[in-house]
């Protein structure tokens, strides 16, 4: 029981790191970016390739798994995404689906369609017993890392100047511009950072979620659930939504495997219909 809860939390935290960039893109630029998973996949492949082909140790690959997608995100944001901020949601959806298709095929072409396996360092393998609860070492590692990230994010958002500007820009871009805030710079930085986080999540999650070219499509719905159910005005909403989703998914697969993802999708529909603004959002 507690093991499942524990695994669920680890899974949920991972989802949060993967999806929080999307929450910002959506909340800040009102952009529906279905291609967010592609950046996560990029991070995953950076780690997998560095480890399996060059033999770089796992931990050493993680910074690169952040940096490469971040740069990728920055370039794409500056060249393509920014042209679409003012377009209809339909256009944004079509555009980002196009990107996903391209990413999937390109990765398939470069690395093949098989699952990418990564060999975790031995000190992260296995389980230990804490107070009678079986705890996976790697999952503890994920919880620690992601937990640290969440705290760091929260601090950046609430304590730094960048954070307050970001929040101002999310609240009302026009007013923020009027206050002399360079909103487009904030957009670009945030987009890059969010992509980087997704990449890091993809690298960390390669072991748990699996990693193959269809990754962006497979997990798209999960990311979307996190942001639509969690709302986009704070990071606590998506965080809680991620944890809920992670726990529900792990528990569902364990206890009622025959029902599968059915429950999650149904719950999502119910939440969205009853609370179109998100579960943790105060009605405006």
């Amino acid at each position: 029981m507690l093991t499942i809860l524990f695994d669920g939390i680890a899974y949920g935290m991972l989802l949060f790191v993967l999806a929080c960039g999307l929450a910002v893109t959506l909340g800040l630029m009102n952009f529906v970016n279905l291609a967010h998973g592609a950046f996560a996949m990029a991070g995953g492949y950076v780690t997998a390739v560095l480890m399996n082909r060059i033999g770089v140790p796992f931990l050493a690959t993680l910074p690169l798994a952040f940096i490469v997608p971040a740069i990728l995100g920055l370039v794409l944001e500056r060249t393509l995404y920014k042209r679409l901020y003012s377009r209809s949601h339909l256009d944004q959806v079509l555009f980002s689906i196009g990107l996903v298709f391209m990413a999937v095929a390109a990765v398939d072409y470069s690395f093949g369609s098989q699952q990418q396996l990564i060999q975790l360092p031995t000190w992260l393998q296995g389980r230990i017993d804490i107070l009678g609860v079986q705890v996976g070492l790697y999952r503890s590692f994920i919880i620690v890392i992601c937990g640290a990230l969440v705290v760091a994010l929260q601090l950046i958002l609430t304590k730094t100047r960048f954070g307050s500007r970001l929040r101002a820009a999310v609240d009302d871009p026009r007013v923020a511009r009027g206050l002399g805030i360079n909103v487009s710079l904030i957009f670009a930085t945030t987009f890059a950072f969010g992509s980087g986080l997704a990449g890091l999540g993809g690298a960390l999650g390669a072991e748990i979620l699996g990693l193959d070219p269809t990754f962006p499509l497979k997990f798209m719905i999960y990311f979307l659930i996190v942001v639509t159910v969690g709302g986009t005005t704070s990071i606590t909403g998506p965080f809680l939504a991620s944890l809920l989703l992670g726990i529900a998914d792990v528990a569902g697969k364990y206890y009622v495997p025959s029902v599968g993802a059915f429950v999650i999708y149904t719950l999502m529909i119910v939440v969205l219909v009853l609370r179109p603004q998100g579960l943790f959002e105060r009605a405006r």
Partner: peptide, 20 residues
């Protein structure tokens, strides 16, 4: 044969960028 999805994706991106 295998990667036609890439080109379809590219077409989609171009259509949108060119102004659907």
């Amino acid at each position: 044969p295998q990667y036609w999805q890439f080109w379809i994706g590219l077409i989609l991106v171009i259509i949108v960028l060119a102004g659907r």
